[in-house]
């Protein structure tokens, strides 16, 4: 592929933070992908939505709180953050509970978007 090629990358986040490392290491790939000037979309569904919950305090578990990184994403020109509406409701959360601005989508809309991607990554 020629230099400067841009592909559509989607990261599907379905796992909660801290219980496993997937959320953190997925975020590390997201940042690198942005550094390659690719078209990056992030989807949060199922328990992945908990990654964006406001008010994370990790001092008691002696883990690094990486949630502020989600706020820094727009500095990397990552602005396409999508949250599945049904998954949000199913967890008793609303957009106001999330620490970044997101686009709430129905599952059908998400599925359509996923179809349009070149590379879909999930950790």
């Amino acid at each position: 592929m020629s230099e400067g090629a841009i592909k559509k990358f989607m990261f599907v986040n379905r796992k909660a933070p801290y219980g496993t490392i997937y959320a953190l290491e997925s975020l590390e790939v997201v940042l690198i992908t942005a550094a390659f000037d690719q078209d990056v979309s992030l989807v949060f569904m199922d328990d992945g939505i908990f990654q964006l919950k406001k008010g994370q305090q990790t001092k008691g578990i002696e883990n690094k709180n990486f949630s502020p990184t989600y706020r820094a994403l727009d500095g990397y020109d990552i602005e396409k953050l999508y949250v599945e509406a049904e998954a949000l409701t199913a967890r008793g959360l609303t957009e106001d509970d999330l620490l970044v601005d997101v686009t709430v989508m129905s599952r059908a809309e998400l599925g359509k978007l996923m179809d349009e991607m070149d590379v879909v990554l999930s950790f």
Partner: peptide
Amino acid sequence: GLGQLVEAGI
């Protein structure tokens, strides 16, 4: 580095 993953994806 992780760039190798992104490059592979591209």
